[in-house]
Amino acid sequence: MTETIPELVKRFTEGDSDAFAELVSRYQKKIYHLAYQILGNHLDADEVVQESFVRVYRKRKDLARVTNFTSFVIRIATNYSIDLVRKRRGHNQVSSDPTLMPGDVQVELSKNVSTPREDFENKRLMEEIRRALDTLPPRQKITALLHDVEGYSKPEIAEILECPEATVRSNLHIARTKLKKILKKRLS
């Protein structure tokens, strides 16, 4: 029988390393996916995954007071991703070549890409979306990604970002308004 997250967290706080390994196994894909969406390349996503769990481990003594482990771990990953976004701002991460992706070129828009032309079009669309997202301040960008890409609810995002739900709604509205203007041609 599969253990629940609270059971694993309890065992982890009691000093069970297997429970920690299981938590890593259950959350690493979710964190990688989120970090990749925010940062746009494998290397940074990998750094976020590793650093997030190392930080979770270091804060294991605080876990007894944590009510929602998912929000806790996503918050750590999100905050680290925001730090990396700010750090990378100075480095021109977005490629000028529309056929190339920032970082290591691994992104494809759909799994059923069949022809080079479709592949090219998908990459160009992905690049357009990323450019549009990169124009947003980090918290607006992450709010949009958490809500519209990762599927978190507004109360969950408020818990993750440690802000009022009204702020989440406001950030999401502003982000969507900006993105609609930038991606107007694609949306028509």
């Binding site: 990749y36 996503a45 669309l125 979306i129 519209d148």
Partner: peptide
Amino acid sequence: LKQLLSTPTV
């Protein structure tokens, strides 16, 4: 827009 943002796959 929601559809477009959710389209890309990692």
